[in-house]
Simulated scan of single mutants.
Amino acid sequence: MSKVISRDGTPLAYERTGEGEPLILVGGAFSTGTAEGPLAGLLAPRFSVVTYDRRGRGDSGDTTPYAVAREVEDLAALVDEVGGRALLYGMSSGGALVLRAAAAGLNVPRVAVYEPPFTVLEETRAEKASYTQRLNELLGEGHRGEAVELFLSVVGMPHEFIAQMKQAPVWRSFEALAPTLAYDDAVMGDGTVPAERLAAVAQPVLVVSGGASPAVMRDAAVRTAEAAPDGHHRSLPRQTHDVDPRELAPVLAEFFTTA
């Protein structure tokens, strides 16, 4: 992997494959750059695809205290590294980060996101605030496993599945990445669709959702697209939040190559 240094001195590990216009893929919670590898492979014939470990993950470094603005600077460093201009795609909370980067004025001519986990329900703000407080308490006390359990329960995983996962080797990797749950939580703001921020995104935005995802996620995707001046929504039949990259890749390629 190659490395680029962000503005605050944090080294970021990245890989680049393929030929064409640069396209940076941004993962969500618990993901390192390898999570987007299958999608990168499908897009590489048409783009120069960059996958990277967000700060605090994989082979990238970390610098405290965390701030969302530092992750936007990370993306700016990657954009500069690949030539000063790049397309952006973000998965889940990585999509929320991509939208923040676009609103901040990075030279990204088009951006696409898949199901950024916003909500259209204003009454959930209090629940989100409670989750944020408890998550940071657990991480501050060093209870990484409990922080992971909290996150998984909040996103809807049944307790019996969580109990099974705790016995699997993957649980250690989850605990290692647990501090970054606070990063993703910060990126999400109060959890509602950030209409005011999206109004500042001038470039075309594609928001993709799964046709088989819960209604609250589908509604949030539609509302996110509507809040951007040049926003577009696309639904993928039979797909959920765990989207098949073979279904997603053609949609992204079409959007990113549209004049």
Rank of each mutant, 00 (worst) to 15 (best):
M1D: 10
S2D: 09
V4P: 07
D8N: 05
L12V: 13
R16T: 13
R16L: 13
T17S: 15
G20D: 12
E21K: 14
P22G: 02
L25D: 09
G27E: 14
T32D: 12
G33N: 08
E36P: 06
A40W: 03
L43F: 14
A44L: 07
V49K: 06
V50M: 01
V50R: 05
D53K: 07
S60M: 08
T64C: 06
A67R: 15
V68K: 07
V72G: 04
E73M: 05
D74S: 07
L75W: 11
L78S: 06
D80Q: 09
V82S: 06
V82E: 02
G84V: 14
R85M: 11
L87P: 00
M91Y: 11
G95P: 05
L97Y: 09
L99I: 10
A101M: 02
G105V: 01
L106E: 01
V108Q: 01
V113P: 07
P116T: 09
P117A: 11
V120I: 14
R125I: 10
A129W: 02
A129E: 11
A129N: 03
A129C: 01
S130D: 15
Y131C: 05
N136E: 14
G145A: 13
S153N: 08
S153Y: 05
G156S: 01
M157W: 08
P158A: 01
I162L: 13
A163H: 04
V170N: 05
A176F: 02
A178G: 07
P179S: 08
P179C: 12
Y183E: 15
D185M: 11
A186Q: 14
M188R: 06
D190C: 04
G191E: 02
L198D: 01
A200T: 10
A200D: 07
V201Y: 06
Q203F: 09
V207W: 08
V208E: 04
S209C: 09
A215D: 15
A215L: 15
V216E: 09
D219L: 05
V222Q: 08
R223V: 08
A225I: 00
D230N: 15
G231L: 01
G231I: 01
R234N: 00
R234Y: 04
L236N: 00
H241T: 03
H241W: 02
H241D: 02
H241P: 00
D242T: 13
V243K: 02
P245M: 11
R246Q: 14
A249V: 09
A249N: 09
P250T: 13
V251I: 08
V251N: 04
F256G: 13
